[in-house]
């Protein structure tokens, strides 16, 4: 029983990180209808920028984090402005965009591996303190992850509920022409989408890196986690993404308990395939009229 409770707690902590990834990936996927593979590149970029700032330039950790997140955001926005937007203006198909995105991802992974090496880089030294609540143990870093993750997701949820601009961003995915002819600033909206997406990627990346460190190849894992959470939960429902992230986290932590950590990927893709086979619109998607 205690073990199950502990697993649930771990699941909630992991879900907060997965939610960040789901929101980051989902924002671009939903509003641009575009599978942003380079999301994985933004993910590693942010943490390595922090490492660079702290280790090479000697900034304190807090300053490095702010600069690192900013670099991630600027990087994400530039990917759109320099690659995706020009391609789209030349009416390139979605296949071209996908390959371009994969190209950006590979470029970044190799560049970072070249500069920093392939091994895991540690951001915080020493063993972090942990708290015990009766039989439950939760580390300080886990608490931070959980609080920051859910805080960001909740704040964001309030914003999209209240703000007409963000509703326009939401509508952009299915009704791009409409959003433009209503006079909404389409290109600026793209900037906002990529900036927010990159911010979420960076935040997730740092929360993990501060705990267990980072290596150049974890971007793909982050991308897939976000993508699977969004697709499983349903692209068109914001809380569906969160539910998808939660489901993924809890099932993974159950698999770790029953089998081993190697089963994580199997669980991820198992859920994805089952969803695609039986409910391709997502587990929580509502029923719609056909003409929508």
């Amino acid at each position: 029983m205690t073990l199950l409770l502990q697993l649930l707690v771990n699941g909630i902590v992991t879900a907060s990180l997965y939610s960040l990834l789901a929101v980051g990936f989902g924002l671009v996927y939903r509003s641009m209808r575009f599978f942003h593979i380079a999301f994985g590149a933004v993910y590693i970029l942010a943490s390595y920028a922090v490492i660079l700032m702290r280790d090479t330039f000697g900034f304190p950790l807090s300053v490095s984090i702010i600069i690192g997140l900013t670099i991630g955001v600027v990087g994400g926005v530039l990917m759109d402005r320099l690659v995706y937007l020009p391609l789209e203006k030349r009416s390139a198909g979605s296949g071209v965009l996908l390959v371009a995105s994969l190209g950006i991802y590979i470029l970044f992974v190799n560049l970072i591996a070249l500069i920093f090496g392939n091994e895991v880089k540690i951001l915080s030294a020493g063993i972090a303190p942990s708290y015990t609540f009766g039989p439950l143990i939760i580390s300080r870093m886990q608490t931070v992850q959980c609080l920051m993750g859910w805080l960001l997701v909740t704040v964001f949820w309030f914003i999209i509920r209240r703000n007409t601009f963000m509703k326009g961003v939401w509508a952009m995915g299915e009704k791009q022409r409409l959003v433009r002819v209503l006079g909404l600033p389409y290109e600026f909206m793209r900037v906002v989408v990529f900036a927010l997406s990159s911010l979420f990627a960076g935040a997730a990346s740092l929360l993990v890196a501060l705990d267990v460190g980072i290596d150049p190849h974890v971007g793909m894992q982050a991308l897939l986690t976000g993508a699977v959470a969004v697709i499983v939960g349903g692209v068109d429902l914001f809380w569906g993404w969160i539910a998808g992230a939660f489901l993924l986290a809890v099932l993974q932590s159950l698999a770790v308990w029953q089998f081993s950590a190697r089963w994580n990927d199997l669980v991820t893709f198992g859920i994805l395939i089952i969803t695609l086979l039986f409910r391709p619109q997502g587990l929580f998607a509502p029923i719609r009229r056909r003409e929508e």
Partner: peptide, 11 residues
């Protein structure tokens, strides 16, 4: 006024 797709059904 667009010929089609001129409202956002989800809102």
């Amino acid at each position: 006024l667009l010929q089609s797709e001129n409202i956002v059904p989800g809102l």
